[in-house]
Every structure is written in structure tokens, then in C-alpha cells.
Design a protein around this nucleic acid. Structure first.
Length: 804
DNA sequence: GAGAAGGCGCTTTTT
DNA sequence: GCGCCTTCTC
């Protein structure tokens, strides 16, 4: 099917939209109908292409605003897209389907809540809520939490949903599996009974509704002529299936046939760093194959970094085997070399960094243009200490976000109970908070009663005898009174009333350390107020293109009886019910958990994990802890895929830097209360020497991984960094071997070994010390033997002789 | 019901 | 080594 009416091939001169694009970008923006894949390298103007593409499609009349579906992963990216689009086109973007996967699925389920078999004001469980729901479930069914840790069950359920699997679709491969599937089924029942959905459920239920309801599916398939997906390399199985379902028509056998809709997937396989949470890079090649993609465009011109930085990134990532293939280039010239520093300790590394930063600041670099990246959060501590002692302002990304804070979750639990008294998770959260004399015993009694009658906790309270019954009754009555009192109030007033009536404010006022929490409660009131105005929950603010969209829907031949889904306040067609602002606010709180960075706004050095840095850029970047075991992380080394993902992570880290890049590593590091002796990261050996500048002498011949044909990661019997086993190296080796030669450099541990040293073992032969841990009798060494792989050896037992 | 004591885990994280 | 969570004790 083709677009109705002839549309002239527009040229660059036709539209100012195309004025400042390079050839690759322009080609991407003006792609013809059909499915396309854009391989967008770091810093290549990806978001620009996406937004300009949408603007282009609309302004050339190829699609109406209502016919566009644009999906991102984060709210930040979605907002960015809407902001930029507004700047390009005089169109009200609020009614457009631009949002996160979960945000759009939420919108979809709100509109079709009946078909989806959900209560209209269903609430969304975040990860915390989900875990406590699972814990409660497991307790109720007396599941051994030693054998089935709640976290693991949660992981199992979330993973199953990400793969689009219901309990019935899964086959047990053992007793434990069977139990987990059973728990998954029980969990589903519980959620359904309580009217709540978790994040995975938002996706899965949307997908199933599209799959199982022909009318609904066809409606949306006809509507969304152009589907655009950002960060495609991060999509999981279910998200891909969801896109597929929306994108095209399926034939009688359920096979995808290329239909009238165009899917534009934008992604970068080299920046795929979320496999651990279900992302599937393979979706990119599947997409090309299954959608019969006709157009692939690579955006390889980088506008961010100088070429020493880009060359480093290119060289590093070229060591990955599984790639679609792409090379970044720039016109900017080499710029400064990449600086490499080796420190004797993590403490010294941090110290050195602070000194460098001071110099940078003296040279007029803004502090917020300096970023410190690390592989794991535990590394931030020593850096923070150094920055703090130096009086250098800094901020750390990560940690609890606003809506995840305990005091906020407490208020939200009360608010949720106003909306839905059957929400047992919320009930349990606040039934005795602030404390009101309802102990574990009473609650257990209540749970038993509710279970036997098959009702929610709130309903189970009725008729409960004794003191427990009285106290619980009072609590339920309190909620009921609040619900009464909040009728007709504004959202802000509702929140204020609950803060007061729940006793939360009073409770935190009495708490010596409750000051911050009180401040956050204040902030929640502000957030509620802002939500009403910003999200357009005052009707007037929603004077958005609903009519326009309705018209365009009709002109596209869409079913006028299906609801127009662009107005979350649209009343239900049958009953006239509308979603309350409170329910919408609670949804907002679950889907947008807010900022997770402290002290935003001031000029401060930025500290974050490499993962958190994705999508950001800075003038100066420090990548710290460049050590074997840390980066690449030891847990990723057991398989090939893991190492490749670590390399992609390093690629992301490098490409964050615009002008200046530092890489540092340390000989010793305090981790989990123990001093570790780490080898310099193998990634150093994958960078182009001519782009580097060693600030400390490069310790050559240290038995690094690149040496003597040892090529790729760990091989051999031990299967990686598995910790040391008790057998295999014990006992009775040649006594009286000469004491290890003392190492003149720096503070050496008493056993005299250090990483990089060549050693001989009577049984395993020659090898290289790759790590050292512990001291005295507990001292142990990790040795990479030439013929026996990597082993951990207890130095009190194993005799290791240094080799010349 | 609050505070102390003990145990566990510890890569990365958005929605 | 630290923070979080659960359990113990009064």
C-alpha cells in the first residue's frame, strides 16, 4: 500500500529542516517509505535525525501527527525528543505518541482497560513494590526463602515477562524451575486480585491485547504509519514483538508481511550495554531479516570528539567479533593525546585526579564539564573522599530517586489506598506506619482471615475480633474518612490532607533526623501541584489537538468508535468514568521516579558509572579503575559475550569525552574490605599507542594479556575467576625453594610476589601472577598458567617460585 | 515497638 | 568495610 496521492520528491532546497544536516543525516531523514535501520554512532547526531525525520514526515504531508509512534527507553530521551520537535514544528506534541515503551503501554492499557481485564485505576508496581509483593506471597505459601530467595524469584518473573512468557508457556527443567513457575502463576493471581501491574506486565499485557484482539490491533496498525524506535539495540524480546505487532499486518499463519507501515529503527550495536537486563542486540539483525529492511544508513561522522579519542574508541571496539561494523570519523584533528596514569593505590589515584582537576579548573574548564567514570558504584567512595577533602564540589549520579524514597513511598501508599482499598502491598506498608500499635501478630491474624475468605486485607478487617480487630478497624476507618474528606479537593490539597491525617508529618517532626524527610514531603506537595499544571490535568491545559487527531483519524479511515487515546482524561465510552488526577499522579510517580542526582544545578564535577554516562558528553573525562577484574569486570569474563559487552562499555566510556580523556589504574585497591592487587586492564593493549601519552612509565613486559599469543580472555580448566577451589594445588611441594626475590618497588606485601611476575609451580608449571589478595596466612595469588588456565592459590600452601 | 545485634551481599539499571 | 535487612531482646 502506498501513501495516498503523489508526493513530490522533496529536495534540500525545499525545506529549511534539512539545511544543516550532513549527507548521511539527510539521507536518513528523507528515507522513503519502508523499513529502515540507522546505525548511529556515538555523537553522530542521532536524536537530531530522529526528530528531524518526524518533522519532515509531518511537514511534507506524508503523515499526520497522530500517525507517528516514536518510542524511547527513558523519559529523559522522550522529553528531549518532544522539546526538539516543538522547536522544529508548530505542532502540539503532547497528543502525539512519543514516549517510553512503558509510558505508551500505560496509555494504551488505560484506554483499553476493560479489554485488558484491568480496573480503570490500576496502579503500577515499581521494582521495590514488586519485591515486597513477592516476599509477601512467598511467606503466605510457606516457600523456603533460603532455597528460593525473593530477589531471585523476582528476577525469574521479570525475565520471563521480558521474553513474553506466561507461566503456561514455560516448561520446567527441574524441581526448582517448577516451583518458580508456580510462584510466577501465584504472583500473577495476586496482582490481578489487587489490581496492580508491574513494569513487565505493562508491556506484556499490551502485547497480548494487540495479539489477541483483531479489531484493536488493526486499528493501531492502520493508524501508526510511521514507527520510530530509539536505542534499538536495547530492546528486549517482548519489545521487539510489540513493535512487530504494531508495525505490520500478519498473514494467516501469523507471519509478518511487510505492510503499509514504516519502521525506522535507530541504534548502535557497539553501545549495547544492557544485556544483563534483557536487552537483545540480536534484535537488530533480526529486524533486518524479518522486516526485509531495504535501507540501512550508517551515521559515522562524529561531532563530539577529537580524533585521538575517536581512534582509541575505534581501535578498541574493533576487537569485538560480533559487530555490524562501523567506524567513527571526525574533521576535528587529533587534539590532545589520551593520558594514561598508573597509581600505586586507589587512594593515590584519587589524589592525582583531584590535582589534575584543579589544574583543569585553573585552565578555565568548568567543573561540570569534568566527569569521573567508573565501572562499579563501590569505586566512588575513595574518589568522593578525595574530592571532599580538597573542597572540590562534586555530585554523584545514582542512588535513590525522588519517588523511591521511603517517606515518599509511604505517602504514595496512603494515596493508593484512597484509590484502591484492595492494594495489599500499600496496606501493609502503612498499616503500622506511623506506628499505631498494630503488631506482626495482628497482621498475621488479618492475613489469615483475609485469605480464608478470599478477600483483600482491607475487607478482611471486617468482623475481626479482639484488640487486633479494633486497631485494624480504626486504621481502615481512617483511610475511609480520608477518602471521604478528599472528595472534590485538588490534587495538591489531597496530598496535603493525607500528609496531615496520616500522621506522617507529625511523625517526622518528632524524629530528630526527619528534617530531610519533611523537606521531601514538602517537595511532594510541589510535585503534585506541578503535575496538575504541567501534565494538563486542568482540562484547559489539555486543549490539545484531540479534535485535530480525531479528524485525522477519521480521514485515515480509523474506527471512530474506538476511543481517541490521546487524552488520558477521556471518559469511558460506556460509563463516562474518568481517571482521577490522583490515579494519574500515582502512575506518573511509578513511571517517572524522578531525578537521581544530588545537588543539581551547581558547577560540580560529575561522578557516575559508565552505564549512567551513556548518552552524556563532557569536555574532560576520567575513566578510573582500568584494571583486570574491575574493568573488564571479573564477573563478565567467564564468557565471550560478557567480555564483548565490557568492551562496548569501555567504548561508551571513551566516546563521552570531547577534548580530553584520562585513563587511570591502580596497583592496589581496597575492595570489600580487602586489598586487591590488580593487573592493568587488557583494554590498554587494544588502544593505539600513538594516541596515548603515558604520564607514568608504561610497565612493559608485565605479562599482560596481549603477550605471547595469549590473545583473548581466559581459557582453560578453571573457567575464569571462580575463586579458588580446595583441591588441586594442596600440599607437599618442594620445600626449601629460595625465598621470593624482594621487589624493590613500592610497598610490597610480605610474600614478595606482585602482579605481572612470572612464577613457577611444581604441578602447574610456569605462569603469570594476575592478582593478589589478602595477607599473611590468608594471602592468595591468582595465577594465569601457560598450560593450566587461571587458578587461585593459597600462598601458605602453594609454593610459587619467581622465574627470571 | 524500639533499638541492638547479627547476617548477607557485593556489576551494571530503566521503566 | 559498609549498608541494608531481619531477627532478637527487653
Amino acid at each position: 500500500m502506498s501513501f495516498p496521492g503523489p508526493h513530490a520528491e522533496p529536495t534540500a532546497a525545499d525545506s529549511p529542516l534539512l539545511a544543516n544536516l550532513n549527507d548521511e543525516q539527510r539521507a536518513a531523514v528523507t528515507l522513503p517509505e519502508g523499513h529502515s535501520l540507522i546505525l548511529a554512532g556515538a555523537g553522530s547526531g542521532k536524536t537530531r535525525v530522529l526528530t528531524t525525520r518526524i518533522a519532515w514526515l509531518i511537514s511534507t504531508g506524508q503523515v499526520s501527527p497522530g500517525g507517528v509512534l516514536a518510542v524511547t527507553f527513558t523519559n529523559k530521551a522522550a522529553k528531549e525528543m518532544m522539546t526538539r520537535l516543538t522547536a522544529l514544528l508548530p505542532v502540539n506534541v503532547r497528543g502525539m505518541w512519543i514516549g517510553t515503551f512503558h509510558g505508551l503501554c500505560n496509555r494504551f492499557l488505560r484506554a483499553h482497560w476493560k479489554l485488558a481485564n484491568l480496573p480503570q485505576s490500576f496502579q503500577i508496581l515499581d521494582t521495590q513494590d514488586q519485591l515486597s509483593a513477592i516476599k509477601r506471597l512467598m511467606k503466605q505459601f510457606n516457600v523456603d526463602d533460603e532455597r528460593f530467595p525473593a530477589k531471585q524469584t523476582q528476577y525469574f518473573i521479570a525475565g520471563a515477562k521480558e521474553d513474553g512468557l506466561r507461566p503456561g508457556d514455560m516448561q520446567a527443567r527441574g524441581e526448582d524451575d517448577r516451583k518458580k513457575i508456580e510462584l510466577y502463576a501465584l504472583y500473577e493471581e495476586q496482582c490481578q486480585r489487587e489490581g496492580v501491574v508491574d513494569f513487565g506486565e505493562l508491556m506484556l499485557r499490551s502485547y497480548e491485547l494487540l495479539r489477541d484482539n483483531d479489531a484493536v490491533r488493526e486499528h493501531y496498525q492502520r493508524r501508526f504509519r510511521h514507527i520510530l524506535i530509539d536505542e534499538f539495540q536495547d530492546t528486549n524480546r517482548l519489545q521487539y514483538a510489540w513493535i512487530k505487532m504494531l508495525a505490520g499486518h500478519t498473514d494467516a499463519l501469523g507471519h509478518f508481511t511487510s505492510g503499509s507501515n514504516s519502521v525506522l529503527a535507530v541504534g548502535d550495536d557497539d553501545q549495547s550495554i544492557y544485556a544483563f537486563r534483557g536487552a537483545r542486540v540480536g534484535n537488530m539483525s533480526d529486524f533486518v531479516r524479518e522486516f526485509d529492511v531495504q535501507h540501512q544508513i550508517k551515521l559515522e561522522r562524529n561531532y563530539r570528539s577529537f580524533s585521538n579519542i575517536l581512534d582509541s574508541a575505534n581501535a578498541l571496539i574493533s576487537h569485538n567479533k560480533k559487530r555490524l561494523g562501523k567506524n567513527l570519523r571526525t574533521d576535528q584533528g587529533p587534539g590532545e593525546p589520551v593520558r594514561v596514569y598508573e597509581a600505586p593505590s586507589d587512594f593515590a589515584e584519587a589524589q592525582w585526579m583531584v590535582e589534575e582537576m584543579r589544574q583543569l579548573v585553573r585552565d578555565d574548564v568548568e567543573r561540570k564539564e569534568i566527569a569521573v567514570l567508573y565501572r562499579s558504584n563501590a569505586q566512588s567512595r575513595v574518589i568522593e573522599t578525595a574530592l571532599f577533602n580538597a573542597g572540590m564540589p562534586y555530585r554523584v549520579y545514582g542512588g535513590l530517586r525522588f519517588f523511591e524514597r521511603a517517606e515518599i513511598k509511604h505517602v504514595l501508599a496512603y494515596l493508593r489506598l484512597l484509590e484502591n482499598a484492595d492494594d495489599d502491598t500499600s496496606f501493609l506498608r502503612v498499616v503500622n506506619f506511623p506506628p499505631r500499635g498494630i503488631g506482626a501478630r495482628s497482621i498475621e491474624q488479618l492475613q489469615d482471615a483475609a485469605r480464608s475468605r478470599g478477600v483483600s486485607l482491607a475487607k478482611g478487617v471486617e468482623g475481626l475480633p479482639g484488640k487486633a480487630g479494633a486497631n485494624l478497624g480504626a486504621f481502615v476507618a481512617k483511610i475511609d474518612v480520608m477518602r471521604e474528606q478528599t472528595q472534590g479537593l485538588s490534587l495538591k490539597e489531597i496530598v496535603e490532607l493525607v500528609l496531615d491525617a496520616s500522621g506522617l508529618v507529625e511523625h517526622y517532626k518528632a524524629d530528630r533526623e526527619g528534617e530531610d524527610r519533611l523537606e521531601n514531603l514538602e517537595e511532594l506537595v510541589n510535585a503534585a501541584e506541578a503535575f496538575v499544571t504541567q501534565e494538563g490535568f486542568g482540562r484547559d491545559a489539555v486543549a490539545l489537538p484531540v479534535d485535530e487527531l480525531r479528524q485525522s483519524a477519521v480521514s485515515q479511515g480509523l474506527d471512530p468508535n474506538l476511543p481517541v487515546l490521546d487524552d488520558p482524561l477521556a471518559p469511558d465510552a460506556d460509563t463516562g468514568e474518568t481517571l482521577s488526577p490522583l490515579a494519574a499522579f500515582l502512575t506518573h510517580a511509578a513511571l517517572e521516579s524522578g531525578d537521581n542526582q544530588a545537588q543539581a544545578g551547581q558547577d560540580a564535577v560529575q561522578l557516575m558509572t559508565v552505564h549512567a554516562a551513556k548518552g552524556l558528553e563532557f569536555d574532560c573525562v576520567f575513566i578510573t579503575g582500568m584494571e583486570e577484574g574491575l574493568f573488564p569486570h571479573e564477573n563478565s569474563l567467564s564468557d565471550f559475550e560478557g567480555l564483548e559487552e565490557e568492551r562496548r562499555l569501555m567504548y561508551v566510556a571513551i566516546t563521552r569525552a570531547r577534548r580530553r580523556l584520562y585513563l587511570s589504574h591502580s596497583q592496589t585497591r581496597l575492595l570489600h574490605g580487602q586489598t586487591r592487587y590488580n593487573l592493568r586492564s587488557r583494554f590498554f593493549d587494544e588502544l593505539p599507542e600513538e594516541a596515548l601519552k603515558w604520564l607514568t612509565p608504561k610497565q612493559s613486559g608485565f605479562g599482560q594479556f596481549g603477550g605471547s599469543g595469549a590473545g583473548g580472555g581466559s581459557r582453560g580448566s578453571s573457567g575464569g575467576f571462580g575463586g579458588f577451589s580446595s583441591s588441586g594445588y594442596s600440599g607437599g611441594y618442594a620445600s626449601g625453594s629460595p625465598a621470593p626475590a624482594p621487589v624493590p618497588q613500592r610497598a610490597a606485601p610480605s610474600h614478595g610476589l606482585r602482579t605481572g611476575m612470572q612464577v613457577f609451580h611444581n604441578k602447574f608449571g610456569e605462569g603469570t601472577v594476575t592478582a593478589l589478595e589478602g595477607s599473611g596466612d590468608d594471602a592468595r595469588a591468582q595465577v594465569k598458567f601457560n598450560r593450566h588456565g587461571i587458578k587461585w592459590l593459597a600462598l601458605s600452601v602453594a609454593k610459587l617460585t619467581p622465574v627470571e
